[in-house]
Design a protein around this nucleic acid. Structure first.
Length: 138
DNA sequence: GCCAACGTTGGC
DNA sequence: GCCAACGTTGGC
């Protein structure tokens, strides 16, 4: 199982909207590093859902429900989409500020590669964020 | 193959 | 609204 982080501006597509939709196609990624991360996602992988610009915090966890296939919004064959479903809310959203202050999280892709819209998350980082956010797994 | 110019993202 | 970081493009 691998862990990821996907970013969205809440004005464009928020966690709340995502929950209403129950499922979404993550399209429009036009960056090779981000595309490679989409390509490497496996069904069942978990991804933090981060609100960029507005909020600047991790608000939930999404689950990969369909692995990558060609992005239907473009004819260019280079681009991929992945389908996600909401998995869990984060009771106490983790802000970028908290992440930067926490030494074990300060090196996350989210911080180091600020402009990358689909980043990797290590298992340690994933566990730490869940702890800080009081995420309960049943 | 280098690099300047330009565009985009996202934090502040 | 500004600007830093970074990716992409195109001229040479």
């Amino acid at each position: 199982m691998n862990y990821w982080l996907i970013k969205s501006e809440p004005k464009k597509y928020s966690w709340q909207q995502f929950k209403k939709d129950k499922k979404t196609v993550w399209d429009g990624v036009r960056n090779y590093a981000a595309r490679n991360n989409l390509r490497d996602m496996k069904k069942g992988d978990l991804a933090f859902f981060y609100h960029s610009n507005d909020g600047m915090e991790i608000v939930g966890i999404a689950k990969v429900v369909k692995e990558s296939y060609q992005d239907p919004t473009t004819t260019e064959t280079a681009w991929l989409v992945v389908e996600f479903a909401p998995f869990k809310d984060i009771k106490k959203p983790i802000t970028l500020e908290q992440i930067k202050k926490e030494p074990s999280l300060a090196k996350m892709d989210l911080v180091r590669l600020a402009r990358l819209s689909v980043g990797k998350v290590t298992e340690l980082e994933f566990t730490k964020v869940c702890m800080m956010g009081e995420v309960v797994f049943d």
